[in-house]
Write a protein that binds this DNA or RNA. Sequence first.
DNA 1: TTGCAATTGATAATGAATATCAATTAAATC
DNA 2: GATTTAATTGATATTCATTATCAATTGCAA
Lengths: 133, 133
Amino acid sequence: MGERNTVQKQIILDTLKRFDAHPSVDELHAEIKKSHPAISKATVYRNLKQLAEKGVVMQIAVANDVARYDGGTDFHHHFICDVCGGVYDIDAERGEAPADSYARIQKKYGFAVERSMTSFFGMCAACRVPLTP
Amino acid sequence: MGERNTVQKQIILDTLKRFDAHPSVDELHAEIKKSHPAISKATVYRNLKQLAEKGVVMQIAVANDVARYDGGTDFHHHFICDVCGGVYDIDAERGEAPADSYARIQKKYGFAVERSMTSFFGMCAACRVPLTP
DNA sequence: TTGCAATTGATAATGAATATCAATTAAATC
DNA sequence: GATTTAATTGATATTCATTATCAATTGCAA
């Protein structure tokens, strides 16, 4: 048999997609428990891993932080705030076609590139000190 | 007082810079122990963290993997093989000036960008199946 | 060479992520 | 609808990378 559709799997995916931010497993689990108190954290771990392997969601690895998940599948980048650790989506600019980079790397190194991700680091708008009036 | 220069700190940095690849703490510790058997793994952890905070080395976060360290400080990208997990350096192409992207993000989102990193994913040359003769 | 705070080595503690396992359940087959 | 079977679940134990703790050591300034 193959994979099954379970109530838990659908709730996990639906809840993740409703997030604007990129929650950790703990945060997502806490949110789901509001409507489904019986769900186990292990189930959240298992399903997110399975969904990430299928490419339905994306795991974001941030240095010195737990894994975070992104329900979006379209090509975009991330901004990671050094102060608060928040992860924000950054739209990919038109004209930054990744295919050109992929072809260059393929030719120069012999690596078959399938996807890429750019992370920007600095200080987010909320953490920047407001100018004195 | 400020930070001190210790024998251990210099050996850790020197050994990391001699690596072509991007070792984990375990791998780096094992390499250092060949010449300095008494060094503790905790010391390697502590110094790498301190060096990364100073910007002397770079911590690389790979999903589903331990932290890896990069002794290089110049602007470059990484290729991460989905099969073997290896991390390879990719030269940044001239003309891909990050400053332009930074200014665009600053204007659109209000984020103060300081640095960025692009990771490419796929299959490395060693893992690709050779063509049948 | 003295004083002191940073550092070290050894080890315990933390905590995210995974493994285990009996009970449950989705879905194919009858 | 009933049966069958393997995937899934919830609960919990386990693993293991990383950090904290602490007494002993050491770099460095005075």
